[in-house]
């Protein structure tokens, strides 16, 4: 085995992480430090519980978006799929009189997966641009929900579902932590393993990095795309139900419009808009960072409409940092001898 020289740059690179995870962790630490310095009272266990609560749904949604962004695509239909799946499940449960705590989550995931087939057909079958395809399916899914399923605000959920939504895993500093954190964490861990340790996961990175090379290496690009769009649909459906359970009501007008926040979390988490990059760890950090920022904005009394602008700035920052590190990687190597020894 050859002895490879590990330069200081190597160690810095390792600390920074393949997808800038280290940088993100640093930013979160810095932000917490600033909060501790300027507003010591707010840095409490309750604040962590709040951030955890507001991160659960975004995290579940972000996992699906991560899959698609790694593969080189983009998805804007996932919130529409999420609310369609969750709302129709609740409507269905009420009409047939079903009352169960676990089944609705599975049902929503199945409905989400079925809706994901639309995207899969458009992207893998008709080879459409993913942004246009999912923009179209967002409109279709949203319209179908309001036209065929309903547009009524449902203020009370079936009791078993409501119980799950209210169930506490634990209480931190007087603030409740929902049990629904557990399935989301399990899904995140599961997805991280799939992405790192399975051929399927590595194929997604391969397709995102160089689709034609993937085809030439024998990877069935269309099949991988089909699976990830369906999986992303299932994850969205599940996330939609988590949202409904947590808020304790079902409204067909919710979630849609929050795509930007979720995509922002995925992108600042290191997933490249060009594809082939990204990790579950990065996405988790991205979701937490955004929740922390929004939480701070609320505490500072910044009006709600500014939050969207801040999310926009965060996306641009994330993309800019990535573009910068891409440039750094492909920087010209030095030629002059003097420059090499210097």
């Amino acid at each position: 085995m050859s002895v490879l020289t590990r330069t200081p740059q190597f160690h810095i690179a390792r600390l920074r992480g393949r997808n800038n995870e280290g940088v993100l962790l640093g930013i979160i630490a810095l932000l917490l430090l600033l909060i501790a310095m300027f507003s010591p009272g707010t840095l409490s266990p309750a604040m962590f519980a709040d951030i955890l609560r507001s991160s659960v749904v975004n995290m579940a949604l972000a996992l699906g978006v991560l899959l698609i962004i790694i593969s080189g695509g983009i998805d804007v239909s996932f919130t529409a799929i999420a609310i369609f799946a969750a709302y129709s499940t609740v409507v269905l449960m009420r009409s047939i009189g079903l009352d169960n705590g676990i089944l609705p989550f599975l049902a929503a995931a199945v409905i989400g997966a079925l809706l994901g087939i639309i995207n899969a057909v458009l992207v893998a079958g008709f080879k459409l641009q993913t942004l246009i395809a999912t923009l179209g399916s967002q409109g279709i899914v949203r319209g179908a929900l309001l036209a065929f399923v309903g547009s009524v605000y449902i203020s009370s959920l079936p009791s078993a579902l409501a119980q799950i939504g209210d169930a506490r895993l634990t209480t931190i500093g007087g603030s409740a932590v929902s049990v629904l954190v557990i399935p989301v964490i399990l899904l995140a861990v599961g997805l991280a393993v799939v992405l790192r340790k399975t051929m399927f996961g590595r194929s997604i990175y391969a397709i995102g990095g160089a689709p034609e090379s993937a085809r030439r290496a024998g990877i069935r690009v269309g099949r991988v795309q089909t699976v990830i769009y369906i999986a992303a649909g299932a994850l969205s459906g599940f996330a939609g139900m988590v949202h409904v359970a947590l808020v304790g009501h079902a409204s067909p007008f919710e979630l849609v419009g929050t795509e930007l926040t979720v995509i922002a979390a995925v992108v600042i988490g290191g997933a490249s808009d060009a594809g082939g990059r990204g990790s579950v760890q990065g996405v988790a950090l991205g979701v937490v960072l955004l929740a922390l920022i929004q939480n701070s904005l609320v505490r500072l009394g910044v009006p709600g409409f500014w939050h969207t602008a801040v999310v926009g700035v965060v996306i641009l920052l994330g993309v800019a940092i990535q573009a910068q590190s891409r440039r750094r990687r492909s920087k010209r190597s030095t030629i002059l001898e003097s420059a090499v020894t210097a």
């Binding site: 340790k197 399975t198 051929m199 399927f200 590595r202 990175y205 391969a206 995102g208 990095g209 160089a210 034609e212 090379s213 993937a214 030439r216 290496a217 024998g218 990877i219 490249s272 594809g275 082939g276 990059r277």
Partner: peptide, 27 residues
Amino acid sequence: DLSLFPNLTVAENVAMTTRVAGRARII
């Protein structure tokens, strides 16, 4: 054009076709 994967490591690039041909599931 080499048809390699710029976003993956050297080792993963080298192993890619072997994995595909071996129908590997876990890598």
